[in-house]
Design a protein around this nucleic acid. Structure first.
Length: 436
RNA sequence: UCCUCGGUAGCUCAAUGGUAGAGCAUUCGGCUGUUAACCGAAGGGUUGUAGGUUCGAAUCCUACCCGGGGAGCCA
């Protein structure tokens, strides 16, 4: 693709040349007979220099009176400049204003402080700011790395439906869709059941898409709509899942460190924390986790699941993600394969990110025996008819299989070192926020 | 859903029962190296909504609405 204009990100290749940049006015500083329009173009930010003596009167006046976020094409000469943050400046020769933001309705997001409510109301504009831009780039890198990792390791992308007739876990956390005749349909909360079918067809598969949870969760690590990548492998066990999860996370961290240093710097991320993320990750059992938590003062009892505080307490024991495995079957979903030595345990594993970012991965080995799966469906009072096709997978060449799900937003929040998950997605959907 | 804090100028905040104010933004003026530029001036208010207490309410009380933080919930 070639464009008539140069991207700011590529400006170093054009030192000394006259180029045209197409972007938006990020900020403007002026001082009588010289002014400094700061231009943003979606690839980077550069300071332009307009000197009154070197320009036609109307060009200088137009630039000097430009308003924030007006769209403008600026032509000028690229010059290496020690004083500039990006290392280059543009000496303005001419400009073309596409749309000038009127003074009466100025751009609402000024370079000064704003509260979160105001910023969220203006999310469609907030995305233009430097920090949100950096987060968006890291998110893109995380997703690209995730896809590359699976693609390069023999996985096939087979996406799963978003409208689903049956619940994985009961219906209380599902969004009901009132449209289809004859049956109730819900927005998916996981592609896993379909993934299992796909794995029997393709061997190793993954799906990647939005998932929906109707949980009344109001915390810094929950979204109502979030994106999840879910691999599933035939002829695989809990051990394979742990290995795959560790490999994926290391790969993502390396990619982000390799390609997004600039963005991490904008976010003031302590990169040494990410540089420490190398395999092997510590692996502990649920039993050991409970002992650690009790020693640290948690009131957790064996048999219950970890709360957010427990996850943080546990994670702070380690400087890299920790894998916690073999949970009591009672806290896990119906489809987990039981441990052969201790059937009260489920062959599930969670990966807890360091620095309090919580569970980023959850998965495990699935039940492959028909009779056991049917028993579990009945024990959980799930409608057997809805799982007929799922049970088919245990009738026709059933094999041990395993997989996991990774929440993209939690992973991005961790990479970026964010306080709140709401900044990791362009338009977050939360309990009390659905606009813009 | 519960606990907790908050809602005052476009934005971020101050005013602790007695004349509603500052910084930024906007407008006008000044400045040839600014880095959230700076200096001077101007305009800008039904203090979330409704009711109550009081001589007098942004301030105290009640209800509701909206939001922040936390909890619970949560492959």
């Amino acid at each position: 693709m070639s464009l008539a204009h140069v991207r700011i990100a590529d400006i170093a290749q054009h030192d000394g040349q006259t180029v045209t940049l197409a972007g938006w006015l990020y900020n403007l500083r002026k001082s009588g007979k010289i002014c400094f329009p700061i231009l943003r173009d979606g690839s980077g930010i550069i300071q332009c220099v307009a000197v009154k003596a070197n320009l036609p009167e109307e060009t200088f006046e137009a630039l000097k009176n430009l308003t924030q976020e007006s769209s403008v094409k600026i032509t000028g000469k690229v010059r290496a400049e020690q004083r500039a943050t990006g290392g280059f400046e543009l000496d303005v020769e001419s400009c073309e204003i596409l749309q000038r933001v009127p003074e009466e309705t100025p751009y609402p997001i000024t370079p000064k402080d704003h509260g979160i409510d105001f910023l969220m109301d203006h999310r469609h504009l907030w995305l233009r700011s430097r920090r949100q831009f950096a987060i968006g780039k890291v998110r893109h890198e995380v997703i690209k790395a995730t896809r590359d990792y699976f693609d390069e390791n023999g996985f096939t992308l087979v996406d799963c439906p978003i409208f689903t007739p049956a619940a994985c876990e009961g219906t209380t956390t599902l969004f009901e869709v009132d449209y289809f005749e004859d049956e109730k349909v819900y927005l998916t909360q996981s592609g896993q059941l379909y993934n299992e079918a796909n794995a029997m067809a393709f061997g190793k598969v993954y799906c990647f898409g939005p998932t929906f949870r109707a949980e009344k969760s109001k915390t810094r690590r929950h979204l109502t709509e979030f994106w999840m990548v879910e691999p599933e492998m035939a002829y695989a066990t809990l051990e394979d899942v742990k290995e795959l999860a560790e490999g994926l996370v290391c790969f993502i961290v390396q990619r982000v460190l390799a390609n997004r240093r600039t963005e991490l710097a904008i976010l003031e991320r302590d990169v040494s924390k990410l540089e420490a993320i190398t395999g092997p990750f510590p692996r502990i059992s649920y039993d050991e986790a409970v002992k650690i938590l009790q020693r640290k003062g948690s009131e957790i009892e064996w048999g219950s699941d970890f709360g957010g505080t427990d996850e943080t307490l546990l994670a702070e024991e380690f400087d890299r993600p920790v894998l916690v495995e073999k949970y009591p079957a009672q806290v896990k979903a119906f489809y987990f394969q039981p441990d052969s030595e201790r059937p009260e345990l489920a062959l599930g594993v969670d990966m807890l990110a360091p620095e309090g970012y919580g569970e980023i991965i959850g998965g495990g080995q699935r039940i492959h025996d028909y009779d056991l799966l049917l028993k579990r469906i009945e024990e959980h009072h799930l409608p057997k008819e809805a799982f007929d096709w799922y049970l088919d997978l245990r009738r026709f060449g059933s094999v041990p299989h395993a997989g996991f799900g990774m929440g993209i937003e939690r992973c991005v929040a961790w990479m970026c070192g964010l306080e709140h998950i709401r900044e990791t997605i362009a338009y977050p959907r939360m309990l009390y926020r659905t606009r813009p």
